[in-house]
Design a protein around this nucleic acid. Structure first.
Lengths: 222, 222
DNA sequence: CCAAAAGTGTTAGGAGTACACCCATGG
DNA sequence: CCATGGGTGTACTCCTAACACTTTTGG
C-alpha cells in the first residue's frame, strides 16, 4: 500500500507587529489560483525533516530557522487528486527582510497577516488553525518567541511579539518582571533611538541552555 | 513519489500499579522474534486515525478508548525493507481485563512494564520514549490520567496512576487538595473494602466538559 | 514645554509545598 | 488491641494580576 506523502510548512513571521504566514498561489489545478501553505513531496532518500527544510529553503531562501513537526493530516479525500497525506511542519523566521520570491519554484508567494487570510486550498485552513494553536501553547512554556526576533531587540518589541501571537494586550510591568525572573535576557549597552522619546535599551536572548521554562515554574498566562 | 505508510500504536495501561505497554513479537523478518510496537499499513480508503483504531481493535479487542496522534517518524533507513514512514499514535486503555490475545493477527502480544522492556525492533524504542514523554506532559495539564481507570475508583488508585506515570511519589494531602480544587471528581456512596482497614470511598470522574486544565490555572508538578 | 514611548514598585490573592496525626476496619 | 491503609489542616513561600507615575528624548 503506497501513498503519496508531502510535507507542508507553515512559516510564521512578525511583520509590522503582526503575526504573518507565508502562502503561495497555486498555478495548477486543483484549486488553481487559490492560496495554499507551501509544501511538496517527500523524496525517496530524505527524512521528513530534511524535506521540510528543503521546502523552507526553496520558499524563503533561509536556513537555520526554528522548525518543528506539527501534525500529520491524512483524511482520504483531503486531496481531490487521490490519496495524499501530509506531514505538517511549522517554522518561525526572523522578521529581517525575507523576500518570499527568493525561492526557486515560487509561483507567487506572499506574507499574509493572520487577521486577513484568503480562502485556502485543500484542508489548509485546518492545518493553519492547528499551527496557531500550537504556537500559542508553546509561547507559554518555551522560548520560541525569541525565534521571531533579530539578535538584539527592545523589551517592547519582545512584548509585541507575544501580544501579536496571543492576540491580546499584556501588562508591561508584569511582562518585564517575568522576563527578569526568567533570567534569559542580557541587556546590552546599545539603545534604539526612534522618534522623539526616550531610547530603548537593546537586549539579547541568552538562554540556549533550556528551551523549556517549565523547570523554572514560570509560565505565561493564556 | 509513493511511500509506504504505517500507523504504530503505543498502547498504555496500568497493571499492578505499574505503567505497561503492549508489545507484539514479530513472526517474520526483519527483526524476527523481536518485540515491537503493534501497527500496520494504512489502507487506501481509511484516515490515519481510522487505521490506528482498526489496529487497536485488532490487538486489544477494545474500542472507545483514548487515542491521540503522537508524531510521525520518517528517517529513510528506519525500516531495512525500504522506505516506510510511520504515524505513531498513543492509546490509553482501562486496566479492566484486556486480553491482548483477543485480537486477530496477534502473533504474540504481551504487556510489558515500562521498567522492564525488552529490546525493540526498528526505531521503536525512540517512539516509545517519545510517547512516555508526551504522556507525562499531558498528565500535567489534561485529564488523560482518568482514561486509565475504571468508572469508579478510589483516590489512592488515582494517585497511583499519577505516580506510576511520573515515576515518583506524590504527597497524599496535596494530591487530594488539587483534585478537590479542580472539582472534577464526584464522590459516590460506595466504598471499596479491601483488607483489614478502613474502606475507601469510590469516586467518579465528572468533567467531560474540559480536557484541558490550563483554564483553571492548576497544574501538576513535574 | 510638549508629545511619546521607556522604565519602574507595591499590594492582595491564591496555588504549591512540606509536614503528622486520627479514623475505620478485619482479624 | 493491633496492623493497615483512609482521610484530614496549617503555615510559608512564591507567582500572578491589577494598577500610575517619572524619565528621557526630539521637535
Amino acid at each position: 500500500m503506497s501513498i503519496r506523502v508531502t510535507v507542508d510548512i507553515i512559516i510564521f513571521t512578525i511583520r509590522q507587529q503582526e503575526l504573518c504566514v507565508l502562502l503561495v498561489k497555486r498555478g495548477i489545478p486543483p484549486f488553481k489560483g487559490r492560496w495554499s501553505i507551501p509544501g511538496g513531496f517527500v523524496l525517496e532518500r530524505e527524512s521528513l525533516e530534511d524535506a521540510a527544510r528543503r521546502e523552507l529553503r526553496e520558499e524563503t531562501g533561509v536556513d537555520e530557522v526554528y522548525l518543528e513537526q506539527l501534525y500529520s493530516f491524512g483524511k482520504p479525500k483531503r486531496d481531490p487528486r487521490g490519496r495524499v497525506i501530509t506531514i505538517a511542519y511549522f517554522a518561525l523566521v526572523k522578521a529581517a527582510g525575507i523576500h518570499p520570491e527568493a525561492g526557486s519554484d515560487a509561483a507567487q508567494a506572499q506574507w499574509f497577516p493572520m487577521s486577513g487570510l484568503p480562502s485556502l486550498a485543500f484542508d489548509h485552513q485546518e492545518i493553519l488553525d492547528y499551527a496557531l494553536l500550537r504556537l500559542r501553547n508553546k509561547l507559554e512554556y518555551t522560548t520560541v518567541g525569541f525565534e521571531l526576533l533579530p539578535d538584539k531587540f527592545t523589551l517592547t518589541e519582545l512584548q509585541r511579539v507575544y501580544e501579536a501571537i496571543l492576540d491580546r494586550k499584556l501588562d508591561k510591568r508584569n511582562f518585564r518582571r517575568k522576563m527578569e525572573l526568567l533570567g534569559i535576557l542580557r541587556p546590552t549597552q546599545e539603545f534604539r533611538k526612534e522618534g522623539s522619546h526616550r531610547p530603548a535599551r537593546l537586549h539579547r536572548f541568552a538562554a540556549r541552555q533550556f528551551e523549556t521554562l517549565k523547570d523554572k515554574g514560570i509560565l505565561f498566562p493564556f
